[in-house]
Design a protein around this nucleic acid. Structure first.
Lengths: 246, 246
DNA sequence: TCAAAAGTGTTGACTTTACACCCATGA
DNA sequence: TCATGGGTGTAAAGTCAACACTTTTGA
């Protein structure tokens, strides 16, 4: 590749320089939130005839003067008013015919946002939250993109303190557990869940209680400062967790 | 993205259609082999002045008429003569200035090949195998790409029967263990390693022995047929391995 | 006083790790 | 007979899964 780029166009076999550049690159964002005890995704009604009635993910073409990894931040800022979000690149999709209007290769990202965050404004009336479990079909290959992002989220959530981005600053252990259950799609044992979370050491006990709950209030916690960096620093995990022994 | 594409060029803010398409997309392949008891990578001497003396990964621009995921197969076929390889997409790199000759976004793949495979021909004299551990610097951002691919390989190898793609059809448990040690960069306990591998049930006992070894020969094994599919089928792993209990 | 959820420990099953000796072969 | 690696089992430590009762609060 790098090599061909340097070659004069005539040398690039029979395909002209212009043709080579006739591929657009976009990003698509799977924006998750947690609302009504359900994991939800932000979608927009597709305005293409081919997909009338279907929804699609939020995306945009990557600009010539922006880093690939910056594009989803721009899209999110535009669409939700928020920056400083948790974002993770998942995979790039590039089948020839994945886009009806031409050749578009897209890099998928997922993002986690707190639905109650003050800065959040999803006012544009064509944007809607949809429970992930109820989504059967999306425009383009967006259902596949959604599925890969969900799978990646599930993997991440087991290992890293990322789910907290979906919750408000303060939360109870019940809320946290329900969130995990929504993401993973399974039920968890309360005692074991609490033990495990305690063991991770991610949480700070705020010495405050829930209020306005119609039952015994639980303690409130927040994620310790040290774990809050949103810009994904190279997760240099120890490579080997618990495998073949020494 | 999808939306803008449909708009007339004038509508796409102030950036022209042509500018949007003035981004090239390439693939770069981290081709691993296992030789001299070391994990090695196939590199080519960079022909750019900026990188004189440095090596780079093998890549090429994606053709307008090929799927993104097909491009690395083409590159590998061209460079090594082999098809039907194990290939996995890792991540897409797209900083504005990552390429000296213009805007090029690249999708990284890693591949595992058996250095003794009959079809393998890396005759082009500008191609060389380099022990991964000895690589300090590469052209472009290729060192970072190599590192991500290595990390992904390490993750995969713990869970899925992929390392076998680096070995000949028949191999001994010692060879297999040494391979794992090279990939992971650590030493493994022989008894525990054998127990673990046996437990996975990946191997078929060929009831044959090594020969031409200057010591007691070991049994030969091969990967069971059922595990040999190279085209990565959707690894639908059970999502939860060993985490929070029910 | 009822309903709802908070909070809390123990046990058995399983997994992981650490570790050492005798055996078969070729030189 | 020596050097090299092949082949094998056990015990202790740690982790995981299953499970139930009492407490607190608001209605």
């Amino acid at each position: 590749m790098d090599k061909n780029l340097k070659l004069k166009t005539a040398e690039i076999e029979k395909i002209s320089h212009l043709e080579y550049f006739n591929i657009a690159i976009s990003v698509d964002c799977v924006i998750f939130c947690y609302q009504d005890k359900k994991l939800q995704v932000l979608l927009i009604k597709s305005d293409l005839e081919e997909f009338s009635g279907l929804y699609s993910l939020l995306g945009d073409l990557v600009r010539p003067d922006e880093d690939l990894d910056s594009a989803p931040y721009r899209v999110l800022k535009q669409r939700t008013g928020m920056d400083d979000l948790y974002l993770e690149q998942v995979r790039t999709f590039g089948s020839i015919d994945r886009h009806v209007s031409g050749r578009v290769i897209t890099t998928a990202y997922y993002s986690l946002i707190d639905i109650k965050h003050q800065k959040l404004s999803v006012d544009q009336n064509e944007l809607h939250w949809h429970p992930v479990k109820e989504i059967k079909k999306l425009a383009f290959d967006h259902k596949i993109i959604l599925d890969s992002c969900l799978q990646r989220l599930r993997e991440q959530v087991m290992e890293f303190p990322v789910a907290f981005n979906l919750l408000p600053e303060k939360f109870s252990l019940r809320e946290l557990q329900e969130l995990y259950e929504s993401i993973l799609g399974i039920n968890l044992d309360r005692r074991n869940f609490r033990k495990k979370i305690a063991l991770k050491g991610w949480l700070e006990d705020l010495e405050e209680m829930e209020n306005e709950v119609p039952h015994r209030p639980g303690k409130l916690y927040s994620l310790k400062q040290a774990y809050r960096k949103k810009k994904v620093s190279k997760k240099q995990k120890p490579v080997l967790e618990n495998i073949f022994s020494k």
